[in-house]
């Protein structure tokens, strides 16, 4: 009876939050603890995937989907790709010295304490959330990226305040991505001169001519 009373009081939103938060934190710590680089990549995938779940729970569905699509589905696949290109026996697990580990642990613990203190320091942040929003929609976000703000201003700000859209940052990021694409392709291009002549010709002949 008591158990069923307790179950009835459970807020499933909070339970889901705990599940995702626990997974995200546990796998983030696992990334640090693990030595094998491929396992680290796997844990990182799970950690970032769980974070996407947290975004969904916070009502940021578009951000959550983008996290899954760009971060987990794109960036991390790229990272795993890099891991596999360089994962030769001596580099799969490079050990760190114990001194470094202890030092990093102390610094990390200090940082964590500071951050936690900041997290608990503001009364308004500890107030329980409302948990319901009428008609969640990605439209205001899309409009904001186009430079038009259609969302309601946050409470407490003056209604006459002109809020900026994000058209210019959006364009800058687009150009930035293009530059990065070109730059990355240039940096990682195959260096023909490093391959001995004989092997290259044999390779070309075997694959049926130059491509």
């Amino acid at each position: 009876m008591i158990a069923s009373m307790m179950l009835a009081a459970i807020n499933w939103h909070s339970v889901l939050f705990l599940v995702f938060a626990g997974l995200a934190c546990a796998f983030a710590v696992a990334v640090v603890v693990a030595d094998n680089i491929v396992r680290m990549a796997f844990y990182l995938v799970l950690s970032l995937g769980s974070t996407a779940g947290l975004f969904f729970l916070a009502g940021a569905e578009f951000i959550g989907s983008m996290q899954l699509m760009i971060y987990v589905g794109g960036t991390l696949v790229l990272l795993v790709f890099g891991v596999m290109l360089t994962a030769q026996a001596p580099f799969i697990s490079i050990k760190t010295s114990t001194n470094d580990r202890v030092l990093a642990g102390v610094v990390g613990a200090a940082l964590l304490v500071v951050l936690l203190q900041a997290a608990f320091s503001v009364e308004a942040w500890r107030r329980p959330g409302v948990g319901e929003v009428a008609n969640p929609s990605a439209t205001p976000l899309g409009m904001a990226l186009l430079g038009v703000r259609v969302d309601d201003p946050p409470a407490g700000t003056s209604p006459s305040l002109v809020r900026s859209g994000y058209l210019l940052p959006f364009e800058i990021v687009s150009v930035h991505l293009l530059v990065v694409l070109v730059g990355a392709a240039y940096l990682a291009r195959a260096k023909r001169r490093r391959i001995p002549r004989g092997i290259e010709t044999a390779d070309v002949a075997a694959s049926g001519g130059p491509r």
């Binding site: 995937g49 569905e61 578009f62 959550g64 989907s65 983008m66 899954l68 699509m69 987990v72 589905g73 794109g74 696949v77 969640p136 929609s137 990605a138």
Partner: peptide, 13 residues
């Protein structure tokens, strides 16, 4: 409300 992107994103995983 972002169903399309969710499906495509998860499929990529």
């Amino acid at each position: 409300n972002v169903g399309v992107f969710f499906v495509v994103a998860v499929l990529g995983l």
